[in-house]
């Protein structure tokens, strides 16, 4: 059992802050803590499920048409999560809306199918998918918390700042420039923390 496949996805190979893949949903859907975590969990389900299926059938997937096969598998799971969210989490679905179908083209999921699950066993692929999923969800949730805190003065809809701040908050954090600024700041913090390790 190679537990490192799981743990590396959270810190050392964090999809967003180290590998820098799957950035589009990280910028678009993290306007609030709930939306960020919601998107993270939805994408996590698809990532783990597609990793499992791809590793199961990998010996029977012809090399030349592997990408179309991966995309069919991924879009099947995305459509499933789309129906399930509509049926059981309509409030979350109404917020995530168009971003759920877009999980199909999340490069993190196709990337793990191609780079990992196609070459590894089921158990390892599950650990890899789960680790990357946790790393992805945590960063999405963190961005959602920070942006909601600055732009609305709340976290998960609960007021945490004085009423005066909530009257005139830093609204721009909720717009696209705020998302770019935040991911830049987070990335620079991570670079600072990992700089020593990378050189040694």
């Amino acid at each position: 059992m190679k537990l490192k496949y799981f743990t590396s996805g959270i810190v050392k190979e964090n999809p967003l802050l180290i590998l820098m893949i799957g950035l589009c949903p990280a910028l678009a859907t993290t306007v609030s803590a709930r939306d960020g975590f919601g998107m993270g969990i939805a994408a996590s389900f698809v990532l783990i499920a597609s990793n499992l299926v791809v590793s199961l059938i990998r010996r029977y997937v012809p090399n030349s048409i592997r990408i179309p096969i991966f995309i069919i598998i991924i879009s099947t799971f995305v459509t499933i999560i789309d129906y399930v969210l509509q049926a059981y989490q309509p409030a979350l679905y109404s917020v995530l809306g168009v971003f759920v179908p877009l999980i199909v083209v999340n490069c993190l999921i196709l990337g793990r199918a191609e780079a990992f699950a196609y070459h590894h066993g089921v158990w390892d692929s599950f650990l890899d998918g789960a680790g990357k999923a946790v790393g992805f969800t945590l960063v999405l949730g963190l961005m959602g918390i920070i942006r909601e805190l600055f732009a609305a003065g709340t976290v998960f809809g609960v007021a945490v700042t004085p009423a005066g701040y909530r009257e005139q908050p830093m609204l721009f954090m909720v717009f696209a420039p705020g998302a770019f600024l935040l991911i830049g700041i987070l990335k620079s913090i991570v670079n600072r923390l990992t700089a020593g390790k990378a050189r040694s």
């Binding site: 010996r59 029977y60 012809p62 048409i65 179309p68 069919i72 879009s75 099947t76 129906y83």
Partner: peptide, 29 residues
């Protein structure tokens, strides 16, 4: 697995399985 026949057959099988599972989920939800 790398032959021409399986190239077509595998894609057909994957699509069929995907279609059947989607139909089941759709009917359930």
């Amino acid at each position: 697995v790398q032959g021409r026949f399986w190239m077509v057959a595998s894609l057909v099988i994957v699509c069929l399985v995907a279609a059947f599972s989607l139909a089941r989920v759709y009917n359930a939800t």
